[in-house]
Amino acid sequence: MEQKIAVKVDDLTVAYNYKPVLWDIDLEIPEGVLMAIVGPNGAGKSTLIKSILGILKPIAGSVTIYDKPYEKQRQLVAYVPQKGSVDWDFPTTALDVVTMGTYGSLGWIKRPGQKEKKAALEALEKVGMLPFKSRQISQLSGGQQQRIFLARALVQNASIYFMDEPFQGVDATTEIAIINILKELRKAGKTVIVVHHDLQTVPEYFDWVTFLNVKKIATGPVKDIFNDDNLTKTYGINYKVSIQE
């Protein structure tokens, strides 16, 4: 069965001051997978996502989305950045932030209207944050903020979702809620790519994984490549892991 390739990365290299952060990354991410990107600190996981999305400029390499260059396919891609990348004391409400997800489809100048507001409210409900829609975002907990970011991405109705450490510093309830939404997305045929920090939960949450440490160590289905060999290659120490079936 031919699986469509959703994201193809070729020769992606990112360096700061001659120090490589990402080196010659080749990646083919099939459509419909829920994939984790794992690696030690400084491995370039966030950088990988940011350079795919054009937030950081690579010194070499290219990215195609469904065989077309990323710049032409933006409407198919949604980004959920790290919570900490934003100043939560900004004067705005939860609903307002989620509505920002509609700005891409609105384009320049056009203001969000009833249709956009409705979509935002639906997304808020999906992540369980509807009662907080008028709350100033600085009054939200970490888990709630993460859900708002997720709702903002959901509103875009994208085909591919990139998420940067969505489970960092969130409570258990939020973690379960988020992973359930991600699984729903996968069931709907979307591709979800997540920079993940917790190796323990990789086999439970994800069906694909990419091991990254400046270079790509391995990528593929969890059941095939999530093993001690690749873990040691990536993390450099003797990792023992048991995969629960």
Binding site: R74, Y79, P81, V86, D87, Y103, W108
Partner: peptide
């Protein structure tokens, strides 16, 4: 350009991914 200013102030990276 009110919404463009607002979103850029709040989350510049995300704004880039939307194509602005």
């Amino acid at each position: 350009l009110w919404k463009e200013f607002k979103i850029l102030l709040f989350d510049a990276d995300y704004t880039k991914t939307l194509g602005f």
